[in-house]
Design a protein around this nucleic acid. Structure first.
Lengths: 222, 222
DNA sequence: ATTTGTTGTTAAGGTGCTGTTAAGATTTTT
DNA sequence: AAAAATCTTAACAGCACCTTAACAACAAAT
C-alpha cells in the first residue's frame, strides 16, 4: 500500500520533468538526502523504521532544503509538530497530482529566491574580485571603494574580460549615445580606478590599455 | 458569515501576539497592504468586490511578502491557480487554529531564512545583534530602542547583509509601491538609526552608504 | 631627433547627493 | 484630554563626485 503511494508520487514527479530518487526506509532516506543533496524532499510520514519527525529534525541540523510532508494523518497535532520541526508544507491524503505539483513549485520558488539572495555573481581573477550584487570590487579581500561610475566601468570590462572594448563603446554604454569623442572623462576615471586597484598604476596587472583602441581586462580564473 | 471568519482569524492571531489589521473588501485589502506593508497576508478568497487571485497578482508586482490563502473552495483548480500566481500556502475551511498558526510560523520562518543566515533567529556581527523574534537591536548588550520603521530597515538590511540594497528597493519593501524617489524619509531614518547604533555616526561601522546606490550592512560573524 | 598624436596625471570648479536639524502632523500612551 | 513618542516634510550645510581644463609622459612616424 505504502509502496504504491510512493510509486504514485514518483510517477507524478518524473512525468513532469523532475528527477526522482526513492527511499523505502527512514534510514535510507536520510543517507540518500545526505549523499545526493536533492533540491526537494517529499516525505511520507508512515515509514516503517523511524519516526518521520526525527528525519526532519536530523535534516534541519545541516540544511534548509524544502521538505514537503505527505501523510494520511489529519490530526492537527501531527501537522503542527511537523511544520514546527522544520517541514515547509503538509499535504494530507488523499491529494491530487495537480496540488502536489503546485506545492512543489511553490517550494522550489522559495529556494530560488533564497538562492539569489545567498550567492552573488562574481568575477574573479587572481586577487581581484568584482561582486556584481554587492556593487563591490576587492583586491586581496580589501574593499577598493570605487565610485558609481568607476564601478560601472570595471563591471562592464569584467563582463567582457579578455576582449578589447573601444573608448566609444564604453562611452556609449555608460554615458549615452551623444558622448562621442570625449575620451577625457574615461581617462580620468581609469587613472582613479588604477590608483585604487593596481599595485603599480604605471604597470597595470588587471586592466590593460590597447593604444589607439580601448581597454581590456584580464581573463578570469577558470 | 464571512465576517465571522475574518473575525475568527483575527482573534486567533491577535491572541498569539500578532498585530492584525482587517480589510473587508478587495480594494481595501490592496490599499492596506500597500500602505501598511505587513509581514504577512492572510487572504480569504471569498471577497465581495474583486477576485482574490487578482489581489495576489497585484501584490506580487512589487513584493514577495508571504500570502496565505484561506478558502472554502476545495477544488484543485482553485488551489493550483492561487499557488501558481504567487500564494505561499492554501488552507481550506474548516481549519483549526493550531494549523493556521503553524503555517503562519512557517511563512514567517521563510522570510527570515530568505536572507543569508539560514535557520538563525538572530543576526550577529561584532557588538551588534538583531533579534528578529524580540524585534530588538542591541549594541554591546544594550537595547537601542529603535522605532518600528527603524527596526524594519535594520532587519531588512541584516537579512541581506553584505549586499547593497538600493533606495528604491528598501522604499518599495517598507513603504509600498508608490514611494518611488522619496529618499528623504530614508535618510532621516538612517540618521536616527546611526545615532542609536553607531559609536561615531559620521564614520559608521555597521551600515555603510554606497553613494548613488543604496545602503549595505556589514556581514555577520561566521 | 623632432614632431605629432595619444594617453596618464593632477588640480579646480560646479553640481548633485547625503546627513542633519527642526517643526508640524499624526499616532499612541498616560 | 493631555502628554509623549513617532512619522513625515522641508530647509540647509557639508561633502563626495563628476566634469573640464591644462600639462606631462609616452609611443609612433617622418
Amino acid at each position: 500500500m505504502k509502496k504504491s503511494i510512493s510509486g504514485f508520487i514518483k510517477t507524478i514527479l518524473t512525468g513532469n520533468g523532475y528527477d526522482v530518487i526513492l527511499a523505502h526506509t527512514g534510514a535510507e532516506a536520510f543517507s540518500m538526502i545526505s549523499s545526493h543533496c536533492p533540491d526537494l524532499v517529499v516525505l511520507d510520514l508512515g515509514l516503517p523504521d523511524v519516526d518521520g519527525i526525527s528525519i526532519i529534525e536530523a535534516v534541519r541540523q545541516w540544511t534548509q532544503l524544502p521538505i514537503i510532508v505527505v501523510s494520511a494523518r489529519t490530526l492537527e497535532r501531527d501537522k503542527v509538530e511537523a511544520l514546527d520541526k522544520g517541514a515547509d508544507d503538509y499535504i494530507t491524503k488523499p491529494f491530487s497530482a495537480a496540488e502536489l505539483l503546485a506545492r512543489v513549485r511553490v517550494a522550489i520558488r522559495h529556494t530560488r529566491t533564497a538562492g539569489i539572495m545567498a550567492s552573488s555573481r562574481k568575477f574573479i581573477s587572481g586577487d581581484l574580485t568584482v561582486d556584481y550584487d554587492k556593487h563591490m570590487v576587492t583586491v586581496g579581500g580589501e574593499n577598493c571603494r570605487l565610485t558609481q561610475n568607476e564601478f560601472k566601468i570595471v563591471a562592464l570590462l569584467s563582463r567582457c574580460a579578455g576582449k578589447v572594448l573601444t573608448y566609444d563603446f564604453i562611452l556609449k554604454e555608460l554615458w549615452g549615445p551623444q558622448s562621442h569623442g570625449s575620451n577625457q572623462i574615461l581617462r580620468v576615471n581609469m587613472a582613479n580606478i588604477r590608483r585604487k586597484i593596481e599595485k603599480n598604476p604605471a604597470d597595470p596587472k588587471y586592466i590593460f590599455t590597447e593604444v589607439g583602441v580601448g581597454y581590456r581586462m584580464i581573463e578570469p580564473d577558470s
